[in-house]
Design a protein around this nucleic acid. Structure first.
Lengths: 356, 356
DNA sequence: ATGAAAGCGCTAACAA
DNA sequence: TTGTTAGCGCTTTCAT
């Protein structure tokens, strides 16, 4: 026989010679209970250090007050921010977050999602690696509230919250234009939707400002800084060289900056550089990097809010939400002194992520 | 009346005119069941897309297969790593992680811990901000398995897994000594145990190598890079100036490096610098920073392993574990070219944390 | 090999 | 104001 729980409602009821229901009502502040019994119950509960058993409660109420969060990797600063923001907005409503990750393996993702459903989470937030809706069949049929973040999945009928990547491209490029750049290049990312969108934004900005759009100014890079380094080296051989570069993401930008400085050119005087992502260290680089923030906190917050609305039944049927990105200007586009160390940059960002 | 669950065991039982017990046995591979009924049950289960209800199961088995993880802030790279590592070790055993944070507020911490217990987690891992055992009373009396990580709490009887901070100080300092430094300073951290330990390690190393220990070479800093900057400026006025500095953590080291370069000195030729923590961006700085890694992954892994041992009943009564830190040598102690950009550093670290 | 009975700790509906 | 009855979906025990 399994050991009994310590301090249950029936313990209190027995001791006080009242019914369990009475105890339950007192503990949840429901129904009409005389002040006298109320006090007695509360007293005994405290004596026994009573802790409600959420599992038992959940079994009957059909609510676990947990939400499942499924991410490719919650170690990534972006997703970590999102996760925290979700936990934050959901906590005041009494929910906890069960977090899981799938390392970009859509098989694991589906399995984990099903597990979370089996655990009776009240809602699910997923940054999916799925490419089609098939993986979502079983989840959807259980019709538990679902919100997709960061990556859209075709044909899945669920609200989506993510960054407006086109706006990122536009914002970055327009910033370079405003700064006076006229020959603006782009180190583009890999063959995924996000990268295509950022490229499209770059093109749209050039078009809107009637600037030339030479294909030789669009060089393929990928995720990593090394690809940015190589791409930039190619770009430097183009004639005339660009006076501004928008890079797919911050690592690529970091690589690009190294290439520029290795070539003996200065940032931003010869070439201004803009990244995208605003990973935390952008601030502490040799030349702090101007970048476009993706609004991780806002994504998490909105996603959680939409999920809550669904779970609480206020079926506002939240439509998709695109979070507008924000430009973060640093010295890679605005500084004047370049080959020496910049003045002390933000004193906050480094501390924020490291104090412990 | 609340809506019924879709596809329960009794549904299958009814359809097949067998008992729920039989279904249960088949689904769990327990007891003796004829191949025939077995097949029928499995078939019907698949048709109904049966998902076991873990809540119901948990109520009777008294196991939820969840572990609670309570951190000051899971956005911090160190804790994020720890969390991931825990999730990783625990997953093959069928456990999920409910993650929560408390922003260094020990009141919230206690409340959250109790909530997690109410949710019937099978075990708890906490990086506590508690300074005494009082906050743990209720948790301990429920005697649910508990493992403390990163920060020890006096008088709490629970296994602890953390970094050997004294070893960090020793390792860093000895590295500077080996490099040839003879005048080694320390920018010490705030008035907490960890900082004191690192300082002690620094002192021990100097003593062991019979190097001078002038108090003017120990300057107080704190968590943030700005404090490192100020501390280093003070240090530069000392005569003779040091030829090596061990900094409490990486941000402090980053601040220190800025001060050194602002003073027109070179790193590491004039002054070599070592940090501690190995936050991800240490690699992409103007001068990549030599630092001491705290073994976040290992901490998470060990903690999880100990917890599992406790939960599964193999009461090995895991003793405290101190993870030995690892030195990560970069150019702030080993480079030769200094005022120009270093050769392209590690191509991995940046990508690792940013590709998405 | 199968099932009937009992119960996990709690809440919902209805009675008294 | 209080209590009785009846489960939630599952597992355990013990008969058959």
């Amino acid at each position: 026989m399994l050991p009994r729980m310590p301090g249950t409602m029936s313990d209190i009821a027995r001791d006080l010679k009242v019914s369990v229901v009475t105890v339950s009502k007192v503990l949840r502040n429901r129904g009409n209970i005389s002040a006298a019994t109320r006090a007695r119950v509360l007293k005994r509960a405290k004596e026994l250090n009573y802790q409600p058993n959420w599992i038992a409660r959940s079994l009957v109420t059909r609510r676990t007050f947990t939400v499942g969060l499924l991410l490719p990797d919650f170690t990534h600063p972006f997703f970590a921010e999102v996760a925290k923001s979700i936990a934050e907005t959901v906590r005041p409503h009494g929910y906890h977050v069960i977090i899981s990750y799938f390392e970009e393996d859509s098989g694991i993702e589906t399995k984990e999602a099903e597990l979370l459903v089996a655990r009776q989470v009240d809602g699910l937030i997923i940054a999916s690696a799925q490419t089609s809706r098939t993986g979502f069949q079983r989840i959807r049929q259980g019709k538990i509230p679902l919100v997709l973040i960061d990556r859209q999945v075709p044909n899945v009928k669920a609200p989506f919250v993510g960054t407006d990547h086109r706006a990122i491209g536009r914002l970055a490029t327009e910033h370079l234009i405003e700064r006076g750049c006229r020959c603006i290049a782009h180190l583009r990312g890999p063959a995924i939707r996000i990268a295509a969108d950022r490229l499209a934004g770059y093109r749209a900005a050039l078009r809107a400002h009637r600037l030339s759009q030479s294909p030789q100014y669009v060089i393929p890079a990928s995720y990593a800084d090394s690809t940015g380094y190589e791409a930039m080296r190619k770009l430097l051989r183009v004639n005339p060289p660009p006076d501004g570069v928008f890079c797919y993401n911050d690592p690529v930008a970091i690589g690009a900056m190294k290439a520029i400085r290795d070539a003996g050119l200065s940032i931003p005087d010869d070439i201004a550089v803009v990244g995208a992502g605003n990973v935390h260290y952008s601030d502490v680089l040799a030349v702090p990097l101007t970048t476009v923030d993706q609004g991780a906190r806002e994504i998490g917050h909105q996603a959680a809010q939409i999920l809550i609305d669904q779970m609480e039944g206020s079926r506002k049927a939240g439509r998709d939400v695109l979070i507008p990105p924000k430009l973060v200007v640093r010295q890679s586009t605005s500084g004047r002194r370049t080959m020496q160390m910049p003045a002390f940059p933000s004193l906050h960002s480094v501390k924020d992520i490291t104090a412990r």
